[in-house]
Amino acid sequence: MIRLSILLFGIIATFVIAMFGLTIVPKFFIDEGVREPTYLTSFEITEGHRIFVREGCIYCHSKQVRPEGFGADFERGWGRASLPTDYRNLLPHNLGTMRTGPDLANIGARQPSRDWHYLNLYQPRAINEKSIMPPFPWLFEVYSERARPGRDGLSLPEQYRIPGMKVLPADEARYLATYLISLVQESTGTE
């Protein structure tokens, strides 16, 4: 019976030690610096983040910049290396592990135009015909040309236009674009 108790002890001990080492200890080191609510996260950004998570953007776009000299993140204009304080306390974390598409940590600096984001979300191939990003038409509303006078629809290329109709961003597209434009990582960071 001693054997079994050693086994049980070893199994639990190896687990608990590593659990502390990899989850609790980092918490003590990192939490302190990011706890202070120095960011004013607006409703639109929070909602945009929620939609970003819901549509699973993270499975193709990382949101972490590697330090200069490690990979070519900096040279590609993806911003300076990410810091724990860059993440605005928005959960889940969205660091990502895949770059089927480019990193988004600094997308707001590279593409500050709302219209660019609307077009890219509605039909990515309207911007880059080689893109393999999925379209997100359900974030948009299609109206008759005559409806909502004064609001222009997305300026889509000929083949993506719907005759007699115009495409307008719905609330969700606006939130998501606001969130994406808010992602800027150019300055030296707030430490």
């Binding site: 989850t23 939490d31 724990p84 993440y87 306390n89 928005l90 889940p92 974390h93």
Partner: peptide
């Protein structure tokens, strides 16, 4: 159970928990 605890409430710490 540990991964479901609500204590990993800052993004980078959560990333650590995630990959652990």
């Amino acid at each position: 159970l540990v991964s479901s605890l609500p204590v990993f409430d800052t993004p980078t710490v959560q990333a650590g928990m995630n990959w652990w």
